[in-house]
């Protein structure tokens, strides 16, 4: 089993709204970020919380988001630990569109200050 994403990968969190436990906070849903590093595998919390013993082991990634992506303003970054199934490839086509749109902050991700 190889990791789907490596450090520096551009990802987008799923825009889900599950009727159960999840470790993807609402403020980081549907947001674009950059993978800092894989952290190791853990039982998918969404399933493990249901107590049936059938939760899959999934890679967890530290993913960094610029404040402007999360809040529309701000000059800090927020890093969250996210299960692989919370993440999708950030489509380059979408990214070009976003970069062209005024007021977006794509240029801030992954730069020299992007992440340790």
């Amino acid at each position: 089993m190889s990791d789907r994403f490596s450090a520096g990968a551009r990802v987008r969190t799923v825009h889900h709204d599950p009727p159960h436990h999840t470790r993807l906070p609402r403020y980081a849903r549907g947001k674009r970020g950059t993978v800092v590093e894989p952290e190791g595998r853990a039982l998918l919390a969404d399933r493990n919380a249901q107590g049936r013993g059938d939760a899959p082991l999934e890679q967890v990634y530290a993913v960094s988001f610029p404040a402007r992506e999360l809040w529309g303003e701000g000059d800090h970054d927020v890093v969250l630990d996210l299960f692989e199934s919370y993440l999708e490839d950030d489509d380059p086509g979408d990214r070009a569109e976003a970069a062209a749109a005024p007021g977006t902050s794509r240029a801030q991700t992954g730069g020299k200050d992007g992440k340790p």
Partner: peptide, 8 residues
């Protein structure tokens, strides 16, 4: 950088 510990 704010680290939000959302996993283990």
């Amino acid at each position: 950088t704010v680290w939000d510990s959302t996993s283990e």
